[in-house]
Design a binder for these strands. Structure first.
Lengths: 132, 132
DNA sequence: GTGATTGCAAATCTTTTGCACTAAA
DNA sequence: TTTAGTGCAAAAGATTTGCAATCAC
């Protein structure tokens, strides 16, 4: 996305477009899908000489997630990945390299999913294929 | 499993059956499938008046996992669950209560799984159905 | 005995929080 | 203005580590 569009993009998501949030959005929503940790986003901001504190990175990532702009992916106990692809899809995780790759939802077919317990709705289904 | 069988059980898995490991195995492998965190195992040991340090709990859980007696399940970024069910199966995670429930592998049908990248083998497939 | 295991406390790492300061509307 | 957002440093949790003491074989 063009940097100039970011403030409007954030505003449309109900997020006040501050300088820091626009800088982080520019890193995350440049068009290429990404899976980044908070630390990686922070490092990327530093590389671009965007002054944003780590606490603000965490705040922003959670706000973006809550607004549906990002999605958390839990692969590794050590850290949370934030995925810019919020469509239903799944993941390959390469244990050797630590790389995460998207699998389009259509590539996986879930048949005979059991019914959730009474009163509960399925929020999301995650499929993680671990490779070694 | 009967407590008296635990030493042999551990030994069969290539693990030296120390007092602490037998005490932890008694908590974990009592027959009922469980999903426990290190802290929960530690608390259970304390309740039974088995003196085991938290560091030893972590050591033992990882050794049991490496030996194939347990399986790690990542659901929540805050902690790792150790599952006594090492057969292929999946999980319901109730976000409201934090409860984790097993789904037998047969209840989920994965069709059209994409081929892993060249040279890589599928180590394991995790399906997590998050309920709200 | 001898090497593996344990306990403890300190260290590490990720993430959160409290609060004074600053910026957006 | 007035409220939301930010930065910093400290706190919180989970997990790991270093090392001397202890245990299994």
């Amino acid at each position: 996305m063009h940097p100039a569009q970011l403030p409007a993009f954030l505003q449309a998501a109900g997020i006040r477009p501050t300088r820091q949030r626009a800088a982080l959005a520019a890193i995350l929503f440049d068009g290429a899908p990404k899976h980044m940790t908070a630390e990686q986003v922070h490092a990327a901001a530093r590389t671009r000489r965007s002054k944003v504190s780590l606490a603000t990175v965490y705040n922003a990532l959670h706000q973006f997630t809550e607004a549906g702009l990002l999605r958390e992916v839990l692969i590794d106990s050590a850290r949370v990945y934030f995925d810019t692809n919020t469509d239903a899809h799944h993941h390959f995780f390469d244990e050797a390299s630590g790389d995460l790759h998207d699998i389009p939802a259509a590539a996986v077919k879930l048949a005979r999913l059991p019914k959730p317990l009474k009163g509960r709705k399925v929020a999301r289904v995650d499929v993680i294929i671990r490779l070694c």
